[in-house]
């Protein structure tokens, strides 16, 4: 009973937040509503006993991706009026697409073949799916996990190799050159006549 109440509360917040993301006038506000939506979604996942996914969603999306998003939104000079142009013109198409998606979801969720189990199987109170996931990743799938790590490393190396350029106009120190410098390169003795004009 209590769980149902919490679910409906979270679901209501999630829907309102989702609607606000697309209607908010200020892009920063929209991003903040998206954070709220993620946060509530992770609450719902907790209710579904997927605590690892819930925490990962918070850490990865709220903690990293959305912060990056906010930075980008703040850095870019977005012309809100330009973005809102054609809202009414595109609305019918959006309604049609949204309607089709809703119908498909309904077919999947209510259909005979894809009917989802209403509740996950009951587990012991101390059952931890984080632990189970960790056990699988580090035992059965350790090899695949290592390769995935190598792929990430390659992504880092490639991204840096492809984009990092030493800019010609950037000023930076070269300590080795600073240490090697000789007096004659820095100080020039000029003999000048000592009289005053």
């Amino acid at each position: 009973m209590f769980e149902t109440a919490v679910f409906y509360a979270f679901a209501a917040i999630l829907l309102v937040a989702g609607a606000c993301v697309v209607t908010a006038r200020n892009p920063v506000h929209a991003a903040m509503f998206l954070v709220l939506a993620f946060f509530t979604a992770s609450g719902i996942w907790l209710l579904l006993r997927a605590e690892f996914l819930a925490i990962a969603l918070l850490l990865v999306y709220v903690g990293a991706v959305m912060v990056l998003f906010l930075f980008v939104v703040m850095m870019l000079d977005i012309n809100i009026e330009r973005l809102r142009e054609g809202f009414w013109k595109n609305l019918p198409l959006a309604v049609v697409v949204g309607g089709i998606m809703m119908a498909e979801m309904a077919a999947v969720l209510a259909g005979r073949y894809f009917g989802v189990a209403p509740r996950p199987l009951a587990r012991a109170a101390d059952y931890s799916n984080t632990k189970e996931l960790g056990r699988l990743i580090y035992t059965d799938y350790a090899y695949a996990f290592e390769i995935a790590a190598a792929i990430l490393l390659v992504a880092i190396v490639a991204a840096i190799a492809l984009t990092l350029r030493g800019r010609k106009d950037s000023r930076r120190q070269d300590p080795a050159a600073q240490v090697r410098v000789r007096r004659s390169e820095r100080v020039r003795l000029v003999s000048m006549p000592a009289d005053k004009e």
Partner: peptide, 13 residues
């Protein structure tokens, strides 16, 4: 699949 992606990513770059 993972091996293929590892190979392909290296080749793209």
């Amino acid at each position: 699949y993972l091996g293929l992606e590892l190979l392909s990513l290296c080749l793209y770059s």
